[in-house]
């Protein structure tokens, strides 16, 4: 019974982790940017969806779309206000750009987090669920919302796979992640690929944030841990590897769930972090890393 419970609960949370980490790893793969404002952007989407329901009296679907839209704008703002100016700045030596971008996005994330706390308090908010009620899966009472979360995550990941592998612009993105110079030689504008990738990222982070808001609820405090878990998953799976991130999301998700059920919910994050340390020693490129 407990095993079934863990199986069902772990699946949904892992799917959510997978979705959150996919966008994160895609950005790194293509443009070498580790976006540390990731968690804050997810929280932004969830809080925007909450505000749409409670301040603008919108329905559940509109609120969800609104949240995703706000995260998309947030993602573009991150790129155009923080990342791009740092990348193109002549004042910053080329070899230090990555550190500047890392610090820049970290500070940007803190700004977003503080702004949310200032406007909406730092207490948790929850997004109005699109579906409500519970169903019985093999004797485990499961909220329909949880099943909905898992389904949406996998559908979105599936659509992303199709875009990247089957469409021309998607293939260009994939190629850019393997060899940016080669793509430019083929006549693709790298800056346009970057914009496309940030757009995809914004939508993915938005969906993940809104779903998390429906499933567990988020507060401005969640920003740090969310960035942290995305970071761990991506490093574990291999930086830049989407399939690695998907596998790692399930490893981390289940490890956390097992810990929460079998040991103590207070320790849920610890084993995954220990695993991360071990992986860094034994296989620094991650499970599916290329370098």
């Amino acid at each position: 019974m407990l095993a079934l419970q863990i199986l069902v609960d772990g699946f949904a949370i892992s799917a959510l982790y997978a979705l959150g980490a996919t966008g994160f790893t895609l950005i790194f793969g293509v443009s070498g940017v580790l976006n540390l404002s990731h968690g804050a952007l997810m929280v932004l989407g969830a809080v925007a969806a909450w505000a749409a329901t409670n301040e603008l009296h919108a329905g559940a679907y509109f609120a969800a779309l609104f949240g995703i839209g706000v995260t998309l704008i947030g993602a573009f703002a991150t790129y155009f206000v923080v990342v791009r100016p740092l990348q193109t700045s002549r004042a910053i030596p080329k070899e230090e750009t990555e550190i500047f971008v890392l610090t820049g996005t970290l500070l940007w994330g803190i700004m977003i987090q503080e702004l949310i706390a200032y406007l909406f308090t730092d207490n948790a908010k929850t997004v109005l669920p699109v579906v409500e009620g519970v169903v019985n899966i093999l004797g485990v009472r499961t909220p329909q919302n949880e099943i909905f979360t898992a389904i949406i995550c996998w559908v979105v990941i599936g659509v992303l796979w199709l875009i990247v592998n089957k469409t021309r612009s998607g293939k260009a993105v994939l190629a850019a992640s393997m060899n940016p110079r080669g793509v430019t030689l083929l006549g693709f504008e790298l800056s346009r690929i970057y914009i496309a990738i940030w757009a995809i990222y914004g939508v993915l982070a938005g969906i993940a944030g809104v779903l998390l808001g429906m499933f567990l609820g988020v507060s401005s405090y969640s920003a740090g841990p969310l960035t942290g878990s995305a970071f761990s998953i991506v490093v574990l799976g291999g930086l830049g590897s989407v399939s690695g991130s998907l596998v790692a999301a399930y490893v981390v998700g289940y490890l956390e769930t097992v810990t929460a059920y079998m040991i103590n919910p207070a320790y849920r994050f610890i084993p995954a972090l220990l695993l991360l340390v071990v992986v860094m020693y034994v296989r620094p490129q991650g499970l599916f890393g290329r370098r």
Binding site: N123, A124, K125, T126, P129, E132, G133, V134, R141, P143, N145, E146, F215, L216, G217, S219
Partner: peptide, 24 residues
């Protein structure tokens, strides 16, 4: 804490009532 345990209590339809100190 307050919002999250309450929302999850309802979403998961935990059939046990809550009474006590809940500042939020």
């Amino acid at each position: 804490v307050g919002v999250q345990p309450t929302v999850q209590w309802k979403n998961q339809q935990v059939p046990i009532p809550m009474l006590g100190i809940a500042s939020q």
